[in-house]
Amino acid sequence: MTTHKPADHNAVSPYLLVQDVQSMLLFLTATFGAVEIYKMTLPDGSVKHAEVRIDDSIVMLGERPDGRDPVVCSTHVYVPSVDDCYSRALAAGASSISAPADQSYGDRSAGVRDPEGNIWWLGTYLGKA
């Protein structure tokens, strides 16, 4: 049966426009255990489009044409352990925005900025506040 979206894709997926997809793929793999599921490389070596799976979601990536500035975004990701993910992100080149801490709304959360300037909010659900 035909559907309006590819199999195993959620209806909403972040699309990161970055300067260096290869570097971002390495960051996502090191930080979140992302699995590359698709990559279209152009003859000049630039990446037209790539997709990775993080847990149950797809993150899409592309390089900005003509060397234009990347588009910086902010994305929230629930992870099994905020503390572990935060440490992996820092080891992969991210800078800290906020260290892991329990929040009044029932999550343990942290924030990092990746080497391209994107902000990643990391959360582990602890239960109702």
Rank of each mutant, 00 (worst) to 15 (best):
A50W: 00
C85T: 13
T31E: 03
S81I: 03
S57T: 05
D102C: 05
G33V: 03
R88H: 06
V82D: 13
E63P: 03
A101D: 04
T3A: 11
A110V: 10
M1C: 12
A50V: 02
T124Q: 12
R113M: 14
M1W: 06
A89N: 03
N10L: 08
S87Q: 14
L42K: 06
L25A: 14
D114N: 05
L25S: 11
A129H: 13
E63M: 08
V21W: 05
T2D: 15
A129Q: 15
V21F: 02
R108H: 04
S98F: 08
V82P: 09
D20G: 07
M24D: 05
P6V: 14
D8A: 13
V12R: 07
D102Q: 12
M40Y: 01
F27S: 12
G45E: 05
T41R: 05
P43I: 03
I37T: 05
Q103E: 15
G93E: 08
N10S: 13
V12W: 09
G67Y: 10
P80W: 15
P14N: 11
P65V: 05
V82N: 12
P115S: 08
L28S: 09
P80Y: 15
A11M: 15
G62M: 00
I97C: 02
G106I: 12
L122T: 03
M1T: 08
A101H: 07
E36Y: 06
L61A: 02
V59E: 07
A30D: 08
W120L: 15
A110S: 08
L90K: 10
P70H: 15
W121C: 04
L25M: 15
Y38A: 14
S95C: 03
H9C: 12
G93F: 14
E63F: 03
V77Y: 14
V47M: 09
T124C: 10
K48W: 06
T75F: 07
H4N: 09
T41W: 10
D20E: 00
D69E: 13
A94T: 04
G33P: 12
T75L: 15
A34V: 10
V77R: 10
V18S: 02
V18D: 06
M24L: 02
R113P: 13
V35Y: 05
D8P: 03
Q103R: 15
L42S: 13
V79R: 13
P100W: 07
A110G: 10
G117Q: 00
T29S: 10
A50M: 01
A101Q: 02
G106H: 12
R88K: 11
R64V: 12
V82W: 13
V52C: 08
V59Q: 06
F32C: 00
A50N: 03
D102F: 01
V59H: 04
M24H: 07
H49Y: 01
A94G: 00
D8N: 15
L90P: 00
S109T: 00
G67T: 01
L90C: 08
R68Y: 08
A34K: 03
E51I: 10
M1S: 15
A99M: 09
R53N: 01
T31K: 01
P43L: 04
E63V: 01
V21H: 00
Y15Q: 06
L126P: 06
Q22T: 00
